[in-house]
Amino acid sequence: MTDSVKVQGPHVALLLGEAFERVRRATEGPRWRGLRQSHLRILDTIEPEGSRAVDLARRLRMTKQGAGQLVATLLRLGLVDQVPDPADRRARLLVLTDEGGELRGALEVRLAAIEEGWADEVGAAEYATFRRVLLAIAERGVDGA
C-alpha cells in the first residue's frame, strides 16, 4: 500500500462489511422471509423477460451450483417460476412471480431509503462521490484488483 492511501483505522473490507451489515439489517424480518442478501441479489438481477440461472450466476460472479441453490429457495417460496425459453425450448428461464415482483419492488424502495439516509448522514455531495467511486471500482470487475 502506498503512503498516499495508507490511513489509520479499519481497512476498507471492514468498512464495506459494516455498510453491508446495515443493508442486511434493513432487509430482515417477516416481510423478507428469512432471505439472505444473496437471494435478494438474484431477485434483483432477473430480467423482465426472464433470465437463465447460468447467466445470473455469471453476472453475480457465483458458481452455477451456488446460484442453483439460491434459485431453489426462491422457487420453493413462490417468488420465481421457471418457463421455457422461447429462444431454446430445452432451456428454462426464471421469471418473477407477482409475489416476487412485489418483493423486488419493496427491495428497491428499501435500498433507495437506505441510500437517502446515508446521503443525509454524510451529505449529498460526499455520498455522490462515494457512489461514483464504488461504481468505478465495480465496473472494473474482479480483474481490476
Rank of each mutant, 00 (worst) to 15 (best):
M1A: 12
M1Q: 09
T2G: 14
D3T: 12
D3W: 10
S4A: 10
S4M: 07
V5H: 03
V7Y: 09
Q8V: 08
H11T: 11
H11W: 09
V12N: 13
A13E: 15
A13W: 13
L15W: 11
L16Y: 13
G17D: 11
G17N: 06
A19K: 07
F20Y: 14
E21S: 07
V23W: 08
A26I: 05
A26H: 07
G29V: 05
G29E: 05
P30Q: 06
P30V: 02
R31W: 00
R33H: 04
G34E: 05
L35M: 04
Q37C: 14
Q37T: 15
Q37E: 15
S38M: 12
H39W: 05
H39C: 06
R41H: 02
I42F: 02
L43D: 00
L43V: 00
L43G: 00
D44N: 11
E47A: 02
E47D: 07
E49L: 10
E49R: 11
R52H: 06
A53M: 06
V54N: 11
D55A: 02
L56W: 02
A57D: 09
A57F: 09
R58P: 03
R58D: 08
R59I: 11
R61L: 07
M62I: 15
T63E: 10
T63N: 08
T63C: 08
K64T: 10
G66C: 05
G66H: 10
Q69S: 10
V71H: 02
V71M: 03
A72E: 14
L74N: 00
L75Y: 04
L75P: 05
R76D: 15
R76Q: 15
L77P: 04
L79K: 00
V80Y: 02
D81N: 12
P86C: 06
A87L: 07
D88N: 15
D88R: 12
R92W: 03
V95K: 14
V95D: 05
L96F: 04
L96W: 03
L96H: 07
T97C: 02
E99Q: 10
G100T: 00
G101F: 01
E102V: 02
L103Y: 01
R104Y: 00
R104A: 03
G105A: 04
G105E: 01
G105Y: 00
L107T: 01
L107A: 01
L107S: 02
V109E: 01
V109K: 00
A113T: 15
I114G: 04
I114W: 06
I114Q: 06
E115G: 09
E116R: 12
G117P: 09
W118N: 10
W118A: 13
A119T: 10
V122Q: 11
Y127V: 12
A128Y: 07
A128G: 09
A128S: 14
A128E: 13
T129S: 15
F130R: 14
F130C: 12
F130G: 12
F130L: 15
R131D: 14
V133A: 13
L134Q: 12
A138F: 06
R140G: 15
R140E: 13
V142E: 13
D143Q: 13
A145I: 07
A145K: 06
A145M: 08
